[in-house]
Amino acid sequence: MRCVQMDVTVKYFAYYRERVGKDSEKIQLDQGKRISDLIDMLMARYPGIFNEKNLFVARNYRYADRGEALSDGDVVAIMPHVSGG
C-alpha cells in the first residue's frame, strides 16, 4: 500500500532563518501528518536549532495549534517567541 504524499512550504523567520540558512523550503510529508509531526521532523533534520517551547507556528497565515492536521499546499511559518514591553 502506497502512502499519499503532500507538499508543505515551511517559512523560517528571524533566528530560525539565520540558523537554517534559508528563508523557506518545500517538504513532502505523508497525508494525515500534523504540525507536531512537522516540528519533530524539523528538529531531527536541524538538531540543536529548534526549541519547541520557544517557537510559534502559523498555518496559512494564522497562528496554529500543533495538533492541527496539515493539508497539501499549506504554508507553515516557524517563528521564535518574542517578548517585549
Rank of each mutant, 00 (worst) to 15 (best):
K26P: 02
M43C: 14
E68V: 04
I78R: 01
L42V: 06
A58S: 02
I35R: 02
F13T: 07
R17P: 01
L55G: 02
Q28K: 13
V57L: 07
Y46V: 08
D72S: 13
R59H: 00
Y16H: 06
G84N: 09
D40E: 14
V57I: 10
F50R: 11
N54G: 08
Y63R: 05
S83E: 11
K22N: 09
H81Q: 15
G21K: 09
I27W: 07
P80D: 07
N51I: 13
S36P: 11
M6Q: 05
Q31M: 12
Y61V: 03
V4P: 06
I78F: 01
M1K: 13
G48H: 05
F50S: 06
I27P: 01
D30I: 09
D30Q: 12
V57D: 05
A64H: 01
L29H: 03
I39M: 04
L29D: 01
E18V: 04
E18P: 08
I35W: 06
N54Y: 14
D72F: 03
M6Y: 00
N51Q: 14
K11N: 02
D72G: 06
Y12D: 06
Y61E: 00
L42D: 04
F56T: 08
K33H: 07
A69Y: 12
I49L: 04
R17V: 05
G84T: 09
S24G: 08
Y46T: 00
Q28E: 15
E25R: 06
E18Y: 08
K53E: 15
F13A: 07
D40A: 13
K33T: 09
Y16L: 04
D72E: 06
I78A: 08
I49S: 00
C3G: 15
V20C: 03
G67L: 10
I78E: 00
Y46L: 03
Y15I: 10
R66V: 10
R34N: 11
D72C: 05
N60A: 01
D37K: 10
A44S: 14
L70S: 11
K22E: 11
R2M: 14
R62M: 12
E18K: 10
V57H: 02
D74I: 09
G21H: 12
G48F: 03
L42S: 04
I27N: 04
A58V: 03
K22I: 06
A77C: 07
E68P: 07
P80C: 02
P80E: 07
R2E: 13
R17D: 01
K22T: 01
A69H: 13
G21N: 05
Y15S: 15
N60V: 00
P47G: 01
R34C: 10
K53L: 06
D7N: 13
Q28H: 14
Y12Q: 00
V75S: 05
A58C: 03
F56M: 12
Q5Y: 12
